[in-house]
């Protein structure tokens, strides 16, 4: 990844309370990250579950923009765009407005970066495909079958 992208992500990690930031493709691969190193598989699993949620919303003609998981001691902010999702891990949300502004700026930069866009569209897959290809357990199958295409 370009040094610009590393710098943009580092700007987010430099904010108080942010421990890590990851840009993940629609295939669940980490394409760029900054901050705390997390086992690739772990972020992949987080991305996979979020992509399944996105896929279900897409099936009903809705487009997801953001999902946050809020707990007393952590927060995960997932911001979605057509070919990537940017996950931000926080252990405190004292500077949340600043985190959001910086994230929006970073996303705007990423969307304008031609090299990044070429790479991410090539390595991605359509969000509607994700849910069609996924393997579900019994409870998931029962629930997802209620969302007829």
């Amino acid at each position: 990844m370009s040094t610009d992208i590393s710098k943009w992500l580092q700007d987010i990690v430099d904010i108080k309370g942010v421990t890590g930031v990851f840009v993940v493709s629609n295939r669940g691969q980490i394409v760029a990250h900054a901050g705390v190193k997390i086992e690739t598989g772990k972020i992949g699993r987080i991305a996979d579950r979020i992509l399944r949620i996105e896929g279900a919303f897409r099936r009903k003609g809705q487009s997801l923009k953001e999902i946050d998981i809020i707990a007393s001691n952590y927060r995960i902010i997932g911001m979605m765009r057509e070919y990537f999702t940017i996950f931000t891990l926080c252990n405190s949300t004292d500077a949340l407005p600043l985190i959001r502004i910086t994230l929006n700026v970073t996303i705007a930069h990423l969307l304008e970066d031609k090299k990044f866009n070429k790479f991410i569209t090539k390595s991605g897959t359509s969000k509607t495909q994700i849910i069609n290809r996924a393997v579900f357990n019994k409870d998931e199958t029962k629930l997802i079958s209620k969302l007829q295409r």
Partner: peptide
């Protein structure tokens, strides 16, 4: 977790 927020 305590809450999940979803913006579509």
């Amino acid at each position: 977790k305590d809450f999940i927020t979803v913006v579509s």
